[in-house]
């Protein structure tokens, strides 16, 4: 079942929410539904016009000034983009990592608290761990990713006399496999650590909310028929048939000042 009003599901789901929560809104609300949420719902329903082309939900034709680098150098960016594309390639189902902006996503993540392991326990001492004890490296994520991308280029230069971005796709896969299976190492760190982290980042970049720089135009979600950020599925949860909804992002849910 396709949604018959792809441009307005946001308001519909909000109305549905208001309908179902009616009794709570009428009474003394100690917990639960709060004023801010309700207030913005009401405001939103007043401007029920469909978004103009070029706004959220459709491909912007202009430059995206958010697409620039916060952490990678130019080579690292291009290597990340090419490597991520092999892990999550464009095919007849839809775009690959490059088109989805995955390399921008990874760059931005490396510049964030996640890249510097800000919320991880990083106190010494560091010992060699059993596999059951998890990540025990003194390297921060951004250091491992940057060194790993450099190492892939070096490996590629040594083996194919060309940087990673210039070798054939099959050769790129061979380099990635070498890193995945610890056929090389990065400053004494098993290369599989880098590979696993990079693969994870690639999938995150394909499927995280577009606000983080990947999953461009929600194309990752569209391929999977993932509806993104919807307010309510109360009307669909019992349905036998598959319900295909136009996805919504967090941007669609933001009240702009």
């Amino acid at each position: 079942m396709a949604n018959d009003k792809p441009n307005q599901p946001q308001d519909e789901s909000r109305r549905r929410f208001l309908k179902y929560s009616g009794t709570a809104l009428g009474g003394v609300v100690l917990g639960g539904v709060i004023g801010g949420l309700v207030g913005s719902n009401l405001k939103q329903t007043e401007k029920e016009t469909a978004p103009e082309p070029g706004k959220s939900g459709t491909a912007p034709e202009n430059k995206d000034y958010n697409q620039a680098l916060m952490f990678f150098n130019q080579d690292q960016f291009l290597t990340a983009e090419a490597a991520a594309e092999r892990l999550f390639p464009k095919d007849d189902l839809g775009p690959g990592a490059k088109e989805l902006g995955v390399a921008f996503f990874i760059d931005h993540q490396m510049a964030s608290a996640f890249g510097t392991n800000a919320r991880d326990y990083m106190q010494p001492p560091y010992y060699k761990a059993e596999a059951t004890q998890g990540y025990q490296l003194v390297f921060k994520r951004r250091e491992l990713i940057a060194l790993g991308l450099d190492a892939m280029n070096q490996y590629s230069n040594t083996k194919y006399q060309k940087p990673f971005v210039e070798i054939a796709p099959e050769e790129q896969d061979a380099v990635l496999t070498a890193f995945e299976t610890d056929k090389t190492e990065i400053k004494d760190v098993p290369s599989s650590n880098f590979f696993a982290m990079f693969l994870n980042l690639t999938l995150e970049g394909a499927y995280a909310d577009p606000l983080y720089g990947g999953n461009r135009n929600m194309a990752g979600w569209k391929m999977r028929n993932f509806p993104g950020n919807q307010m309510s599925y109360t009307d669909y949860i019992e349905k036998e048939e598959f319900v295909k909804l136009e996805p919504l992002s967090l941007h669609d849910h933001l009240e702009l000042g």
Binding site: Y20, T23, A24, G31, G32, Y233
Partner: peptide, 13 residues
């Protein structure tokens, strides 16, 4: 019983 009112689940996942 304490008078707290809450809205039902929307199955939002």
């Amino acid at each position: 019983p304490d008078g707290v009112e809450r809205a039902p689940c929307q199955y939002c996942g």
